[in-house]
Simulated assay, not measured.
Amino acid sequence: TQEALKYMRTQGSGRIINISSGSWLGNLGQANYAAAKAGVVGLTKTAARESAQKGITCNVICPGFIETDMTVKLKEVNEGKAWDSMMERIPMGYAGQPSDVGNMVAFLASDEAAYITSEVINVGGGMIV
């Protein structure tokens, strides 16, 4: 972020889009992970305040449960009970796709998002409240 901001400040525009996790709000048994993800949120919000007058936006995306090569392995745990348990926690009832996160990145990088800065945006089907 620091290195990118050097160039963006010189050109007078830019987009910082960081990826954190809904776990930044706290997660049982994962204090270290939650602290690291909360740090990403704090960094992004500080960078947003420091860079807004230079035409730079800084936002953070917090993906929820996204179907990836890693998470689909939960379908094999306890006859799929681990997967089913995750699906029950998502109000929309299904796992997100990597493209759901990618679409938000593309939007935040676009001119249409020029007035959006210092935001934490959850992409999690309602799982992150």
Rank of each mutant, 00 (worst) to 15 (best):
Q53N: 13
L43T: 11
N78K: 13
E112N: 12
S110P: 05
M86W: 13
G12S: 05
M86C: 11
V101Y: 12
V72T: 15
I56Q: 02
S20D: 13
M127T: 00
W24A: 08
G12I: 07
E79Q: 14
A34G: 10
A113V: 14
I121M: 06
G102C: 05
Q11N: 09
T10K: 11
A109E: 10
I56E: 03
S23D: 14
L74C: 02
A52N: 03
A34L: 06
T71L: 07
S20P: 03
I66S: 04
E112Q: 15
I16F: 03
E3R: 06
R15C: 12
R89T: 15
G102Y: 04
A34Y: 04
E50K: 08
T10Y: 06
I128L: 11
A31W: 03
C62S: 10
C58Q: 00
Q53G: 10
G26H: 09
K6L: 08
A52M: 02
Y7P: 00
G124L: 02
S51H: 04
L5C: 10
G126K: 02
V120I: 15
T57G: 03
K6S: 05
G22I: 06
K81M: 09
A52V: 14
A114P: 00
L108F: 08
W83F: 13
K45E: 13
V60A: 05
G124W: 00
M92L: 15
S99N: 12
G55V: 05
T44C: 07
K54M: 05
P63V: 02
L43N: 06
D84Q: 14
R89C: 06
G22T: 05
A36V: 15
T71S: 12
V60E: 00
V120A: 13
G42R: 07
E119D: 10
E112R: 14
A109F: 07
T46H: 07
F65C: 00
K54D: 10
F107V: 04
A4D: 02
N18G: 12
L25F: 10
C62W: 00
S20E: 14
W83Y: 15
A34K: 08
S110Q: 11
Y94S: 14
D100W: 06
L43M: 14
T46D: 02
I90M: 08
E88Y: 01
R89S: 15
S85E: 13
E112H: 14
Q30H: 12
T46S: 12
A35P: 01
S110Y: 11
E79S: 14
L74A: 12
S118R: 11
P91M: 08
A36Y: 10
M92E: 09
T10V: 11
T68V: 07
N122A: 15
N103F: 11
G102E: 04
F107C: 04
G126N: 03
E67P: 01
V101K: 09
V60Q: 00
G22K: 03
I61K: 00
S21A: 15
N78H: 09
V72K: 13
L108W: 07
P91E: 06
C58Y: 00
K73D: 11
E76Y: 01
W24E: 14
V41F: 13
N27L: 13
K75R: 15
K73N: 12
T68A: 06
I56H: 04
A47Q: 13
G64H: 01
R49E: 05
Y33V: 11
G42E: 07
G39H: 12
A52R: 08
V41M: 09
E88V: 01
